[in-house]
Design a protein around this nucleic acid. Structure first.
Lengths: 334, 334
DNA sequence: TTGTACGCGTTATCAG
DNA sequence: CTGATAACGCGTACAA
């Protein structure tokens, strides 16, 4: 079942069938309808592989994400896929895990599949420490546009969609300071660009208020409820006083709520807690978590818009920023 | 950059290059290495579209899922993608939403992309009420194998991987009865095959113990923490007594925990709660949720194994069942 | 073991 | 407005 069968049935050439197929205007209404009914009768579907070969594109975008089962990333994948689809693009999903080797491998896999662009979801793909090797991304960008959702890497054909993480944490911390807090703890999960921005936001707010933060008070922590709980218990028993906790991820904030419960500390009266990402987890605890909404939907949507603009030949700014919101629930009272 | 360039550089024919490319053994070591170094020098990558055209496959599987941001479904998508990749297949992701029209549309979209098979993740694709129209699945199965993860539909080229939901709920309920409970509430989110099996498991356990369940005591509920909370408050204020809650989803069980907290009911002493899916949510509440682990990883893995077997021409049973486990945490004491 | 030649189903370029 | 024909790049009978 191909274009020849249709052309035969309709009594026209394959060129005409192709024209009808692609909505070309240089076809008389009469011929067009002849062709269309022939296609219907034969239940014809164009062969997308042949088209791909000719046009050298299958209108497919590669999505890389370290772990699509992570709540935040899963949401981003969801929104990106939906948006891509709305532009008629397919999404080829690659869950890479956090291994450098695998990220590299999947990148070249996607290139070999000749996708039209690649969207890297999450901050785990770029290593922003000085002297780090991000060449697998740079190299790929010489062939097709690369979009980073919530990550930053400079490059000609690399586009970054980010949340103003620094300001979000800075503002939340400043509000807490205004509300009278001095004894802070900051827990974070990642030293990615985004992770470091959040941390700097925290530190800047502290600096500005002249609050000294010793190293017990900011802690790099596995993204896990229990690890967060454990660490807080650890410094609590060391008699480090604190009445305000900020985190880079809701799971850590949930751990903080559980820590407070375990030790009979009243939230928010004796301890205020702010999470990050405004995920489902925020609604699960008692009291419910105040959390910074990092606008994953808008981030994802902008990422696809940007990519489409680039693919359409438009010239686009390499950096696009989205503003986070603090969603106040019951773990804060400021 | 194509196979001709390589053949020229290596001084062989394109057939030989192709043979090397595909690991064909009828090539002398000498020629092979000549070809390989030519490929390296030219940095040659085979054109996958051309290969797809000839072989009429791109080794791609369509994944349909109503909402990949749902915790359970996101996990399934993750595991399926990983497993597919391990067999050298790509995953084309389609988030359909719950609209029948869209499901149908995406199904034919995937068919038009000539994927080698389609995996439907989640129980929302089949309508198992009598006389329902599932023809979009049946029709698709006449072209390529369809795998249902956690769904059931009879058909020649349709394969179902399911959890023994009935027994899982039945066993949990029976255990609770043995522990002395008589006043049950069952909350569920879906009337899908899986959803009805769970409900029947609940009812069967009740029947067997001679416990009468009036219609207040099982309730179809939106998958939402607050809706569950609301409904329980509603019957509580109506003075329906209950000391045991089973749910078809962890989010509803979280709602139950919050309901108990709000009304000062002690969990598990005055009220035992069992969730379903053993998701991250189960670790968020205080006390932590006992939950039925529906083995999403094994389900996903089996789904891909099955599909690979079918694509390899093997003959496979149309139904594959996985056994759920109750994970006991702090909302139960039996 | 190697090479020639054709088929896969489109799209695009001409010529009419 | 329409048709013939050449790409597109690979796999593979078949021939040597």
């Amino acid at each position: 079942m191909n274009i020849y069968d249709v052309s035969k049935k309709a009594g026209v050439s394959i060129a005409t069938v192709s024209r009808v197929l692609n909505g070309n205007h240089n076809v008389s209404e009469k011929t067009r309808s002849k062709v269309i009914s022939a296609m219907k009768e034969l239940d014809y579907t164009p062969n997308i592989f042949a088209r791909g070969l000719g046009l050298n594109t299958m209108k497919t975008i590669g999505i890389m994400c370290t772990d699509s089962s992570d709540t935040y990333l899963a949401n981003a994948v969801y929104y990106v896929e939906q948006k891509l689809r709305s532009f008629g693009y397919d999404a080829l999903l690659c869950c890479t895990g956090n291994d450098y080797i695998n990220k590299k491998k999947y990148m070249s896999l996607l290139l070999s599949k000749r996708v039209d662009g690649i969207i890297l979801i999450g901050s785990q793909f770029v290593n922003n420490s000085p002297g780090s090797d991000n060449s697998y991304i740079i190299d790929a960008s010489s062939e097709i546009p690369i979009i980073l959702v919530n990550g930053y890497l400079a490059g000609d054909n690399i586009y970054c969609v980010m949340c103003n993480d620094h300001d979000a944490v800075y503002n939340a911390a400043s509000d807490m300071i205004k509300a009278g807090h001095r004894d802070f703890v900051y827990l974070y999960t990642s030293t990615s660009f985004s992770g470091m921005n959040k941390l700097r936001g925290f530190k800047d707010a502290m600096d500005e208020a002249g609050i000294h933060i010793d190293k017990d008070r900011f802690h790099l922590c596995t993204k896990s409820i229990s690890k967060s709980n454990d660490y807080l218990s650890f410094i609590y028993e060391k008699n480090v006083p604190f009445d305000a906790i900020l985190t880079s991820d809701d799971s850590l904030a949930v751990g903080a709520v559980k820590f407070a419960y375990k030790h009979g500390i009243k939230v928010p009266d004796e301890l205020e807690i702010v999470g990050y990402n405004n995920s489902v987890l925020a609604n699960c605890t008692e009291p419910e978590l105040s959390s910074i909404d990092s606008k994953v939907e808008q981030l994802s949507s902008n990422a696809v818009d940007l990519l489409m603009e680039v693919l359409g030949g438009g010239s686009v700014s390499n950096i696009n920023t989205v503003t986070a919101d603090l969603i106040k629930r019951q773990t804060t009272k400021f």
